[in-house]
């Protein structure tokens, strides 16, 4: 498995590098918040938007949550002592702000409509740049997988979903995820394990996938009949 090891190594190099940058960035923020904040926005807006989108499934909500998270971070840092800003672990800290805002928004939405009508608005948000290595078919396949995975995420319980999104979509370590969510590392590990298992089940047995589109709903209804015929 030399390939996997190499991939893991290069991933951890990337992560270590971004953590180094964050330490430097926190110091710059402590020194001159106004000057350094645009750098923070550049470095973290995509991940905060991704976290919000994968938790909520709606692009407009995700835009608002990501923007609001950045602004709240700015205001919080303005009120902090310099030493406290310099010591911030930006990745988990910013993630926790986005997660809390997304949770509040989801609860408000649930208050507005009865839960049984709360079919999450599925908006998986892919206008990714085309993967240059693959042809159009693989690209379409990949996009379909992403769409289904994004939908499957939205069907996990909120606690499991946030753990999976922070740990595996955003790529925080278990320790950082635990810090961001204020849960013990053991809990995070269990929730991530459970989440991966549920996602895998969804993928391995297409017929068990919850009906999300009329076509699929029909297929799901027809399936027992077909089984009976056979």
């Amino acid at each position: 498995m030399a390939g996997t090891t190499a991939a893991t190594d290069s991933l951890s190099v990337v992560l270590n590098r971004s953590m180094d940058t964050d330490v430097a960035l926190a110091k710059r923020l402590a020194k001159d918040l106004d000057a350094a904040f645009p750098v923070l926005v550049d470095a973290h807006q995509d991940r905060l938007y991704t976290i919000a989108l994968r938790l909520l499934g709606d692009r407009r909500d995700a835009e608002e949550v990501a923007q609001d998270a950045l602004v709240r971070a700015f205001r919080a840092m303005r009120g902090y002592q310099r030493e406290r800003v310099a010591a911030l672990r930006l990745r988990p800290w910013l993630a926790s702000i986005a997660v809390n805002l997304a949770r509040n928004r989801r609860r408000r939405a649930e208050d507005r409509q009865p839960p049984n009508q709360l079919e999450p608005m599925l908006d998986t948000g892919f206008d990714l740049p085309a993967d240059l290595r693959s042809g159009p078919e693989r690209r379409a396949d990949r996009r379909e997988t992403q769409r289904e995975l994004a939908e499957a995420l939205l069907r996990l319980t909120p606690a499991v979903r946030t753990a999976i999104v922070l740990r595996h979509v955003d790529g925080l370590s278990v320790a950082e995820t635990a810090e961001a969510l204020g849960r013990p590392e053991g809990t995070i590990k269990a929730q991530v394990h459970r989440g991966l298992r549920e996602l895998r089940i969804t993928f391995e047995t297409p017929a068990l996938r919850p009906p999300t589109t009329p076509a699929r709903a029909r297929a799901a209804r027809l399936l027992p009949a077909l089984e009976a015929i056979r």
Partner: peptide, 11 residues
């Protein structure tokens, strides 16, 4: 692979 770029309006 579910990571996406934020729309410019966010930042």
């Amino acid at each position: 692979d579910l990571r996406v770029a934020a729309p410019p309006a966010v930042g």
